[in-house]
Computed example of a mutant assay.
Amino acid sequence: MGKNIASDRLDGVDRTLLRFLQEDGTLSSAALGERLSMTVTPCWRRRKRLEDLGVIRDYQANLDRRKLGFDVLAFAQVRFGNHSASAPDDFEQVILGLPEVLSCHKVTGEADYVLTVLATDLESYGQFVEDVLRRQPGISSIQSSLALREIKAVTRIPVPV
């Protein structure tokens, strides 16, 4: 795996701190310091440095999509017919503003983009495809796959020791 400047500047304490925060992002600097056998101020400084380096991007609660009524998880593969026009760039800007799109990746292979999309049911996903995706200029094909069963879904990044 590739390294970058930020990961080269992390010591064992930083890495342990990151693992603790991924397990529980609500930990205060005092609680985190206690787990790391540090006082509050140095612990807060380390956390702040990791935030400033961009290693810690933000904090959030992990929600259960089904309990919030999102029973459909779909993967949409989008292909463009013409890559030289501004259509892909315009598409990316549209996608950035859609809360039901959890992720969008520009990929290699048959598709140009792979989207992870939440919907309340099949009908609402169908509406998303028709009302949003099919209306984007330059798209030549859309292929959808629906999740039948979720085997693993994590957001934690393995932090090397």
Score class of each variant (00 low, 15 high):
residue 57 R to E: 11
residue 132 V to C: 05
residue 92 E to C: 08
residue 58 D to V: 08
residue 118 L to C: 08
residue 21 L to F: 03
residue 2 G to E: 11
residue 41 T to G: 11
residue 71 D to I: 02
residue 1 M to H: 02
residue 98 L to I: 10
residue 83 H to L: 15
residue 129 V to D: 05
residue 14 D to C: 00
residue 55 V to W: 04
residue 64 D to C: 13
residue 13 V to D: 01
residue 108 T to F: 13
residue 75 F to N: 05
residue 59 Y to A: 01
residue 38 M to D: 00
residue 32 L to Y: 01
residue 155 T to K: 11
residue 151 I to R: 03
residue 109 G to I: 01
residue 11 D to N: 15
residue 121 D to Q: 00
residue 88 P to Y: 12
residue 99 P to R: 11
residue 84 S to V: 10
residue 24 D to Q: 01
residue 68 L to G: 00
residue 113 Y to E: 02
residue 23 E to G: 13
residue 79 R to K: 15
residue 30 A to S: 14
residue 9 R to K: 13
residue 61 A to I: 06
residue 151 I to N: 02
residue 88 P to K: 12
residue 99 P to D: 12
residue 153 A to Q: 13
residue 20 F to Q: 08
residue 39 T to Q: 09
residue 68 L to A: 06
residue 46 R to E: 08
residue 57 R to F: 05
residue 71 D to F: 08
residue 15 R to S: 07
residue 78 V to E: 01
residue 41 T to F: 06
residue 36 L to P: 06
residue 158 P to I: 01
residue 128 F to A: 06
residue 36 L to I: 10
residue 67 K to A: 14
residue 76 A to H: 10
residue 33 G to T: 04
residue 47 R to H: 09
residue 117 V to T: 02
residue 118 L to Q: 14
residue 126 G to T: 12
residue 11 D to T: 03
residue 159 V to L: 02
residue 135 R to G: 08
residue 111 A to N: 09
residue 127 Q to Y: 09
residue 30 A to D: 08
residue 144 S to V: 13
residue 134 R to D: 02
residue 139 I to F: 00
residue 43 C to T: 15
residue 132 V to I: 11
residue 19 R to P: 08
residue 133 L to V: 00
